[in-house]
């Protein structure tokens, strides 16, 4: 039966959540309950898709006095991401605390073993958790999501050892759930590519140094400046850069003139040779190269 338009409610009275995915809406409600039951909550905050969503969801659920987003800064954390994290916090009124971390001073981390992330997260949480507790935040959480549980994530062990909770994973939020929920909240990160630390561009066994991290950061910034969008990694193979692009970006950069521009940009950052990966971007690419898996 067709309803006369005059009988429909005014559009502004319609609950926007009525149009959202009911499964996602349920997860969002579960997350709000989880946070409320454990408040106040401090969050390890990188400004990536996951932790940005968690921080904003916590701010909305708990108010400004019962949430604290804590950023750990180090040479493995890209400047651009730091700026993005601060902008998210400013826009959504999330209180932020910044701490310096020194994972590169740990020779076990710098040697770049396949469980490198364990030493990084050990350093991060050993600084973040005591500071959070001193400030009265009994719960410390991170942005680990349900998809991460099936990936090689040695850093997760460090989180568990420090009592860090992972509510998004616990409640079954996949990356797509987080992107969808972030879009609904108008978070600028909703379609941001995943952004692991810069050390993930170095093959295991190649020492992590500030100079190499800076070179990688400059290289990826240079490619962004050329207009490359979406997922992007500059994998470091000493003299050779191996560039992984999103599948829809790859064909046009194989065109020789564009490839020249790409190569010139990376040679200017210190690489002698430049290559394009024919498969394109894949998360954990260097794990595959080394046969490392969950």
């Amino acid at each position: 039966m067709e309803v006369p338009s005059a009988t429909l409610p005014p559009i502004m009275d319609i609950d926007a959540t009525a149009f959202s995915d009911p499964i996602l809406a349920g997860k969002e409600a579960d997350l709000a309950s989880w946070l409320s039951a454990r408040a106040p909550v401090a969050i390890g905050f990188s400004g990536g898709v996951d932790s940005a969503y968690l921080a904003v969801a916590a701010r909305l659920a708990l108010g400004p006095d019962r949430v604290l987003a804590i950023i750990g800064r180090s040479p493995s954390y890209p400047e651009a991401q730091w700026a993005a994290a601060r902008e998210v916090a400013r826009s959504f009124d999330v209180p932020v605390l910044e701490l310096d971390t020194a994972e590169l001073d740990d020779p076990r981390y710098a040697a770049n073993p396949s469980n490198r992330c364990y030493f990084c997260k050990t350093e991060l949480w050993s600084r973040v958790v005591p500071v959070a507790r001193e400030r009265g935040f009994g719960t410390v959480a991170d942005g680990t999501n349900a998809d991460d549980l099936s990936d090689w994530r040695p850093g997760a062990q460090a989180g568990r050892e420090h009592g860090v909770a992972s509510p998004l994973a616990e409640l079954g939020f996949t990356k797509q759930h987080i992107r969808d929920a972030s879009k609904r909240l108008e978070l600028p990160t909703w379609q941001q590519p995943s952004s692991p630390c810069l050390s993930s561009r170095l093959p295991y066994g190649i020492e992590v140094t500030p100079a190499r991290l800076k070179q990688i950061e400059r290289a990826e910034s240079a490619l962004r400046a050329l207009g490359i969008a979406g997922d992007l990694r500059v994998r470091y193979h000493e003299d050779l850069a191996r560039v992984e692009l999103a599948a829809d970006e790859l064909p046009r950069w194989l065109e020789p003139r564009r490839f020249d521009a790409l190569r010139d940009a990376l040679v200017a950052t210190g690489f002698e040779r430049v290559s394009l990966d024919l498969r394109g971007f894949r998360s954990g690419s260097l794990n595959v190269l080394h046969g490392v898996g969950a």
Binding site: L240, R242, P251, L254, E255, P256, F259, D260, R263, D264, V267, R273, V274, S275, L276, D277, L278, R279, S285, V288, L289
Partner: peptide, 27 residues
Amino acid sequence: QAPDTRRAVLALAREHGFTHVAIELPS
């Protein structure tokens, strides 16, 4: 530049024990 050719190269590389294939085009 043709997707079919790239797919074929990747498949051949897998068959021959390689996990990654990249193309270098020197200056």
